[in-house]
Amino acid sequence: MTAKVALVTGASRGIGQAIAIAVGKLGYLVVGTATSQVGADAITAHFSESGIKGVGMMLNVADTASVEAVVKSINEQFGAPSVLINNAGITKDNIMLRMKDDEWFDVIDTNLNSLYRLSKACLRGMTKARWGRIVNISSVVGAMGNAGQANYAAAKAGMDGFTRALAREIGSRGITVNGVAPGFIDTDMTKKLGDDQRDALKNQIPLQRLGSPEEIAGVVAFLVSDAAAYVTGETIHVNGGMYMA
């Protein structure tokens, strides 16, 4: 029997890379995506070094044609993905009074519209299989807000709404849809912050530190596993206590 297939977007570094490895360790064949061929090749190499089955592929989640082509290629090469992790995301921070159209639209397109494209492309296979897991990586910022991130917060809160709606829509087919909302995690995305900002942040976090990508990946792996079979429509916050709903 061939392995079940998991698709993880934005898997070349940070949280996505850790998720890809964690899901691979569950026994899935993992397709991790990157925006460049160099990135995709690096993913393939990293999977091989980490001893998990899978490959990197080039994908632009903001481009419908690219999404359709990649999902088609996965279906043909490996079989339809039964696990989809929507992780790819970008930030283009600016205060609202200075925000440019491209900063707004690019963030919404990559972070939120991508869920529409990828979920739609993967749902047929999951529906047919009567089994599927979708996990959307949102952010604590979607719940709390953050000055300078109206675009990012809007996209992330949108993802959480999408999670709940799709969970209701497709639950009867054995497909769960959940979210994981990371707080501040030690990745390239948060390395953009200055030392002062990072210190100020730590003071707002009961656990007094940034999280690691593996600490997000562990929760994603749980949601994918059989242990979470009865969890759907839920966004789990993983943030060291900085925000408690």
Partner: peptide, 9 residues
């Protein structure tokens, strides 16, 4: 509505 989509599939 989901049934009708599956039927077409």
């Amino acid at each position: 509505s989901l049934d009708t989509v599956e039927l077409v599939m």
